[in-house]
């Protein structure tokens, strides 16, 4: 549509300015925090003059150089943030693998069955999708205490898988609808059972959809605060609740910089994720929209 129209210079200026402004608003907070994470608290949270954060006055005075890794050392070594990072890795990998396994089977079934109950299942999934996670957490706590499963990683993993299911089902359901029915049905005419048709015909062609869905499962597990903060014990904490716990201990001078360093560390994987999977994320966001 763009090429055929002539635009007034004013319009181009206004829209470019708007986009530039947005780019600054979207990126500056992250750049600023990245920059500040290499300073000491007296600079990043400066009482006297905000320009201290740029010049690094106190960082120079306290450490002898304009940049310091104190925040990172404090967070990763002293406060054992690496333990939380390991826990996050375990939780995220397990959640993605399990929810994709469950989701592909279920999503495939929903896409291929024309009965009325598939509609109801999808509607129930939509309501489940809308429920705030913390409301469910208040239902888990007492039973989990009773059965003595509170605090362990597997508990949080299976809970996150379940919370993830409604979304995964919707996404994969609409993806499987786009794979022609003839493909698996001709395999069944040739004598495959439904599962064999799924295994040998559908699985090889489903990867684009599965990768896109997997990205969003990853984000849900990685970004979760409500479930992991309430269901994991202190030593099993993942990164996000760990960062929240840093905030409670900021009375000591310099400790808030641990949180800043941890925040930057936890953002880095997401940055890499967008770098490599921008196309898939964009297509995933719009997939639901196109289906209505």
């Amino acid at each position: 549509m763009a090429a055929t129209q002539r635009r007034s210079p004013l319009l181009v200026t206004v829209s470019t300015a708007l986009v530039l402004l947005w780019v600054v608003i979207a990126s500056f907070p992250f750049l600023w925090t990245l920059w500040g994470s290499f300073k000491v608290q007296a600079d990043f949270f400066s009482l006297s003059d905000w320009r201290n954060a740029l010049r690094g006055t106190f960082t120079m005075a306290q450490t002898g150089s304009a940049f310091t890794g104190q925040g990172y050392h404090g967070a990763w070594v002293q406060e054992e943030f690496w333990r939380a990072a390991m826990n996050t890795l375990i939780v995220v990998v397990c959640v993605v693998v399990i929810s994709l396994t469950f989701g592909t089977l279920g999503g495939y079934a929903l896409a291929r069955s024309g009965f009325r109950y598939t509609f109801w299942l999808l509607m129930i999934a939509l309501v489940f999708r809308a429920m705030p996670h913390i409301t469910l957490v208040s239902g888990y706590l007492l039973p989990f205490f009773q059965w003595n499963v509170w605090g362990h990683l597997p508990t949080a993993i299976i809970v996150l898988v379940a919370i993830n299911q409604p979304f995964t089902l919707w996404m994969l359901h609409s993806f499987f609808l786009n794979i022609p029915k003839d493909l698996d049905e001709s395999a069944m005419v040739d004598g495959c059972t439904r599962f064999q048709a799924f295994r040998h015909v559908i699985v090889p062609v489903m990867w684009p959809g599965v990768i896109t869905t997997g990205l969003f499962s990853f984000l849900l597990a990685y970004n979760d605060f409500a479930v992991t903060a309430m269901l994991l014990s202190q030593q099993n904490q993942t990164m996000v609740p760990k960062i929240a716990s840093f905030l409670g201990s900021t009375q000591v001078e310099g400790n808030v910089m641990f949180a800043v360093a941890a925040v930057v560390s936890a953002t880095a994987p997401l940055f890499v994720l967008i770098l490599f999977f921008q196309r898939q994320i964009v297509s995933g966001l719009t997939a639901g929209a196109v289906k209505g």
């Binding site: 992250f30 990043f44 605060f225 953002t267 997401l270």
Partner: peptide, 30 residues
């Protein structure tokens, strides 16, 4: 590149996103 930068605020962990903004609007922040 514009899309890349735009995705950041949305993709980032909500708690982290709000902390990043909070530290900036804090009375001692920039």
């Amino acid at each position: 590149p514009t899309i890349f930068v735009s995705l950041l605020p949305m993709i980032v962990t909500p708690l982290i996103g709000s902390l990043v903004l909070y530290w900036m609007v804090d009375s001692r922040g920039v």
